[in-house]
Write a protein that binds this DNA or RNA. Structure first.
Lengths: 243, 243
DNA sequence: TGGTTATTTGAATAGCATTCGGTATTATCG
DNA sequence: CGATAATACCGAATGCTATTCAAATAACCA
């Protein structure tokens, strides 16, 4: 009874190790040459493995790339969370700034991967990065934002999905602009100002009003919160519906 | 002296016509099958042309795609300008709303093309959509924004490049979210609210101070909309109840 | 150890973009 | 107009690469 699990364990561990080796080799080659430029033979060579073996781990080159991309996004998620934890200041906007800085830097550095995430969609098979991996990543922002709402740092009528779209969308677009150097003058397109402007926008548009709120405002806020609660409850209900 | 130019003209016209035929066929096939799925042989067949002939017009399949993309972006630019012209209201925000609506719709419909625009970057050769074509497109926004500045509709300290990044970035990100249906509830991710929220953000953040509506009013409007969403959701839930 | 199953391998296959030698079509000029 | 040069066109042949598969090897168990 004891030896069997051990064997199974080592067996599984072996497979997983080999899978990791393939994944690492694939990642390196994809980073170096891009998707089309990457040769499966080179990946096999770097993983010290027969060419055909890859296909007993992954259906196709595209699906291998997919696995690499998912690993990539999971890594981003962990790092983003770590950045949040490492931020000393507890305030919403300080953490948001840290997240923005990290995201912008990452998008600039891994531009190719991020583009491929959305461009790699085969018509026949459903080869696209699992929504869950992306959702996990954006959840970092969502959690931060919700906490800011709870702590009263954000105006209660702020719309989460819009804030998220503005945050990630703007940063990705800025990253592209910076990378392409669409601007004639580079100076105003460094990463610092992009992040600063973004935080300023969030402060002005989503930040709770500094002045003491009017009674009407308080009532409004209470109503907005109530509405959100209702909406969330409904969503949960809807999710449980068999359809 | 007269016949020669005529001949040259017809000759050039002929070549251009054939080029257009190839481009149209290519576009159709690329739209239908994507870049990798598209067969050069099919493009040739649809253009009623020999397979090899394509290569006397375009260096490679990638460069053919490139030409299609450039034509695509030029078309977008013209249409966006037309949308601006067609907007009756002269105000900055009305026109911005029209542009946002058009852009969001376009991005959703042509998501693949737009992704390919940025993903199609070969490592070796400089195969990427000419920056000029993209710059022309974003210039539609830039001109609108500058005019708004001149007319005093926008606060003078607004930063053009940030506004542009927020505008296009957010819309493209929203389009992706809508297409992927990352959200559990679709209702709040239709195009209408996305555009409305975007315009509200621009009004609040970039609008000249005197033109800003009361925040209370904005909040009220938002809540009224939210209420409507809730009501719709409830109706749908009620309809789906089995018992 | 011998038999049985799972894994690995790389040569063979197949599919596709691209090339190239030859042919048809058009332009040029005596 | 006819001859000749130049150009455009074709599609079978080429070369490259992802993918398959039959044989070889390793792992397992009795």
């Amino acid at each position: 009874m004891a030896s069997k699990p051990v064997h199974l364990e080592t067996q599984r561990a072996k497979l997983e190790r080999k899978e990791r080796v393939i994944l690492d080799a694939a990642r390196a080659v994809f980073v170096e040459h891009g998707f089309d430029g990457a040769r499966v033979s080179e990946i096999a060579r770097r993983a010290s493995i027969g060419e055909g073996t890859i296909y007993s781990y992954y259906e196709s080159k595209a699906e291998l790339m997919l696995a690499v991309l998912q690993q990539f996004w999971d890594g981003l998620t962990l790092e983003a969370q770590a950045v949040m934890q490492a931020t000393k200041a507890e305030g919403f906007f300080d953490r948001l700034q840290a997240l923005a800085q990290y995201h912008l830097q990452t998008v600039i550095e891994n531009n190719d991967f991020i583009n491929l995430t959305f461009a790699l969609r085969r018509n026949n098979s459903e080869v696209s990065v699992s929504r869950d991996h992306l959702r996990h990543y954006v959840a970092v922002f969502d959690n931060l934002f919700r906490r800011g709402l709870d702590r009263g740092e954000i105006r209660p009528d702020a719309v989460l999905w819009q804030a998220r779209d503005v945050f990630y969308g703007t940063l990705e677009y800025s990253a592209r602009s910076i990378e392409m150097t669409i601007e004639p003058d580079r100076d105003c397109r460094q990463t610092g100002p992009v992040v600063d402007q973004m935080i300023a926008l969030f402060r002005a548009h989503y930040g709770a009003a500094d002045a003491v709120p009017e009674p009407d405002q308080l009532a409004l806020d209470a109503m907005a919160k109530e509405l959100k609660n209702l909406s969330a409850k409904l969503d949960r209900l809807a999710a449980n519906q068999p359809r």
